[in-house]
Amino acid sequence: MTQHKVPVTVLSGYLGSGKTTVLNHVLNNRNGLRVAVIVNDMSEVNIDAALIRSETSLSRTEERLVELSNGCICCTLRDDLLIEVQRLVHEEKYDYILIESTGISEPIPVAQTFSYADPESGIDLTQLTRLDCLVTVVDAARFWEDFASGETLLERGEVSSTEDTRDVVDLLIDQIETCDVLILNKCDLVDKEGLGELEAMLRKLQPSAKIIRTVNGKVDPAEILNTGRFDLIRTSESPGWLQELRSGEHTPETEEYGISSFVYRRRLPFHPQRLAQFMSQWPEDVVRAKGIAWVAAGEDMAASLSQAGPSIQFGPAGWWAASRPEAEQRELLANEPEIKRRWDPKWGDRMSELVMIGIHMNRENIESDLDRCLLLPEELEQNWSEFPNPLPWISVQP
Rank of each mutant, 00 (worst) to 15 (best):
Val215Gly: 02
Glu237Gly: 03
Ala200Arg: 05
Phe114Gln: 12
Trp343Asp: 06
Glu100Ile: 08
Phe387Pro: 00
Asn40Pro: 01
Glu158Phe: 15
Glu120Thr: 12
Arg64Thr: 10
Arg246Tyr: 13
Ala49Arg: 01
Arg350Leu: 11
Ile38Glu: 02
Arg350Cys: 12
His25Phe: 06
Asp220Arg: 02
Leu58Phe: 04
Pro310Tyr: 01
Asn389Arg: 07
Leu88His: 04
Gln86Ser: 14
Pro252Gln: 05
Val39Met: 13
Thr251Ala: 11
Leu268Asn: 10
Cys72Val: 03
Arg266Thr: 15
Val110Trp: 04
Glu55Lys: 15
Arg363Glu: 14
His360Ser: 13
Asn362Ala: 08
Gly32Leu: 12
Gln86Trp: 09
Val22Gln: 07
Gly291Met: 04
Ala111Thr: 03
Glu151His: 15
Pro325Glu: 14
Ile394Phe: 03
Leu376Cys: 08
Leu81Ser: 02
Val138His: 10
Tyr96Lys: 01
Pro107Cys: 01
Val396Arg: 13
Ala297Cys: 05
Glu331Lys: 15
Leu333Tyr: 04
Pro221Thr: 07
Asp164Ala: 11
Arg203Asn: 07
Thr76Phe: 08
Glu328Gly: 00
Asp369Trp: 12
Trp294Met: 10
Ile183Val: 13
Phe147Ser: 01
Leu202Ala: 01
Leu376Ile: 11
Glu367Asn: 11
Arg288Ala: 03
Ile123Val: 12
Leu11Asp: 06
Leu131Pro: 07
Met1Arg: 14
Ala293Arg: 03
Ala141Met: 08
Thr61Ser: 15
Ile38Phe: 08
Pro269His: 05
Tyr116Val: 15
Thr9His: 12
Asn185Thr: 11
Asp167Glu: 15
Asp344Gln: 11
Gly16Met: 03
Ser385Gly: 13
Ile83Phe: 11
Trp319Ala: 07
Val10Lys: 09
Glu255Pro: 08
Pro207Asp: 02
Gln382Asn: 03
Ala49Gly: 12
Met279Tyr: 12
Val8Cys: 09
Leu205His: 03
Arg30Pro: 01
Ile83His: 12
Leu202Met: 03
Trp282Arg: 07
Lys5Asp: 10
Leu275Ala: 05
Pro269Arg: 00
Glu364Arg: 13
